[in-house]
Amino acid sequence: MASYIELKDVKKIYRMGEVEIRAVDGVSFSIDKGEFVVVVGPSGAGKSTVLNILGGMDSPTSGQIIVDGKEISKYTSKQLAAYRRNDIGFVFQFYNLIQNLTALENVELAIQICKNPLEPKKVLELVGLKERMGNFPAQLSGGEQQRVAIARALAKNPKLLLCDEPTGALDYNTGKSILKLLQDTCRNMGMTVVVITHNSAIAPMADKVIKIKNGRVDGISINDNPISVERIEW
């Protein structure tokens, strides 16, 4: 049986004049539904590029990406937009909230276009921001903002939640709580979650750890017993 997500020899090559930059140089892996995947690797290894391609924000130079039986790599930009809209939730390092909208509105904005979104207020409650719904991003701490970002991604009720260094800009504890939120979401909602981090210490909390180095998969390890994030210290 084919995996829920399948990447086959995905390459992304940037051409800068004479120079070729192989940001992703033949990456293949698969992810199962409901898996909590952590992608680790040094900075510049090509993690973000892979994630962006997987999330339909970018397209590969070559290779195949199959998500839920559909070949994303052959999608047109419009199909990609539909894919992002219906199947993908993104969480970025710098939250990328819309400053001008309250927490609730940021979530509401995301679900304007969804088929079967979750109730924004409930999602915000879920991420622990019941009290702060009416606040603007600038009135929230980084962790709270990232929660809003996660809530925004979750509210879309996506098949796949992609997080690019969600804790990168956060302090330790906050980062931890965010990771917990993600893990809980994965567990409770059965959502497939991919988290990029350069911090390999958090690898144990994942179902699957994909190591990337120099644009290649450096190793994939499967945790049969992932541990809760609270128990991880780094």
């Binding site: 419009k78 937009a81 809209r85 276009i113």
Partner: peptide, 16 residues
């Protein structure tokens, strides 16, 4: 740009 990119990431079609 960032805001626009964000909503694009959220899956807004070009016309949207």
């Amino acid at each position: 740009l960032r805001e626009i990119a964000t909503i694009k990431v959220l899956g807004f079609y070009d016309n949207e």
